[in-house]
């Protein structure tokens, strides 16, 4: 197992470096110079001396890639040491800005994953066992609509529903709080703020996982060992729980893991709807403001999270299924 993990870590390095190269060139692909853009906007006069100082500060007067003291080395080193430099516009430390918002986004991501898993596995299982009955059709409609429905619209509809329902019950419309309170300070305030975004993000997620559970289970139910279990007269409940479900959960684990990595994408829109000050919102704001240094760091962060999640899934997969370890 440790040999397998070591091999996986080695395979991860070229992907990380490759992602760094892509993100690195992202900033350099903008037409014109970041500093000219910052000083002069579009078409105004800028003091050449000020531009030179700015270039020096951002380190973009150095050679691009070839050599030791280059922009690329700075960029990778910055990432390795969690020192990502400063935001182009506000001058605040990027690591600091990300650190402030990381907790909130991570919590929503974890809650969305939990919501998704809790719904997806039972629903997918029922749907597979009762294949082609009305229960199956309802679950499938739910999962296809979950994939089609934009999470930001679901978020707006949740807010609308909350407003109408609370207005009916208490006579006063209620909105989730906007200020973030850590869970250990006030669990109730924390939950009432984040539960709805988690549901809006988790709906699509659980739709994907439900589909996967259903098709994986259907496949396993056609296996010979399931027929053997049935032939020896085992209870259907035991067959499902002990034989089928265990084996079908492997691909489901992958999907849940992969979707976790993609949650960042979902958060970009949900945080906007619920006005949450998380990483997704920071991303959108930095793109809107053409804050290239911030955008670059965030894109890289997403790639790192994705690659690390993939790594964890691979390890988990090998741990769950010994066949993978030895091949």
């Amino acid at each position: 197992m440790s040999k397998y993990i070591f091999k996986r870590i080695l395979l991860m390095i070229p992907t990380l470096v490759g992602a760094a190269v892509i993100v690195f060139f992202l900033l350099r692909a903008i037409p014109g110079d970041v500093c000219v853009l910052k000083m002069a906007g579009t078409g105004m006069y800028a003091d050449p001396e000020a531009i030179r100082i700015c270039q020096q500060e951002l380190g973009i007067d150095k050679p691009l890639i070839l050599g030791i003291d280059t922009q690329f080395v700075d960029f990778v080193w910055g990432f390795a040491t969690f020192n990502l430099g400063e935001s182009m516009w506000t001058g605040k430390s990027i690591s600091g800005e990300i650190g402030l918002r990381f907790q909130l986004s991570l919590q929503v991501a974890i809650m969305a994953t939990l919501t998704a898993t809790v719904f997806a596995i039972p629903l997918g299982t029922i749907s597979a066992i009762k294949q082609d009955t009305w229960i199956d059709y309802i679950v499938r409609t739910f999962s296809i609509s979950g994939i089609a429905m934009p999470s930001f619209w679901l978020g707006i509809m949740i807010i609308l529903g909350l407003l109408i329902i609370t207005n009916k019950i208490t006579g006063e419309p209620w909105m989730p709080p906007i200020e973030y309170t850590p869970f250990w300070v006030d669990p109730w305030a924390n939950m009432s703020q984040l539960v709805w975004p988690a549901v809006a993000t988790g709906f699509r997620y659980s739709a994907v996982a439900t589909r996967m559970t259903r098709s994986a289970l259907l496949e396993v139910l056609r296996e010979d060992y399931v027929r053997t279990a049935r032939a020896k007269g085992l209870l259907e409940k035991l067959i499902i729980n002990r034989h089928a479900l265990k084996n079908s959960l492997l691909p489901v684990t992958t999907v849940i893991g992969l979707e976790f990595a993609f949650l960042m994408g979902g958060l970009v829109v949900t945080e906007q709807v619920f006005n949450l000050n998380g990483l997704g919102k920071l991303f959108v704001e930095s793109v809107l403001a053409s804050d290239y240094t911030m955008t670059q760091s965030l894109v890289m962060l997403v790639a790192v999270v994705f690659i690390l999640t993939n790594f964890v899934i691979d390890i988990l997969y090998a741990w769950l299924d010994p066949r993978i370890r030895y091949s």
């Binding site: 992202l26 960042m264 955008t295 997403v302 790639a303």
Partner: peptide, 22 residues
């Protein structure tokens, strides 16, 4: 193939946003 793998380590919307930012 390795290059394609690397490009795929960015979620759809993140990649699209990165392009929009440029």
């Amino acid at each position: 193939q390795r290059i394609m793998d690397i490009f795929m380590s960015f979620p759809l919307i993140i990649m699209a946003l990165a392009v929009v930012s440029i």
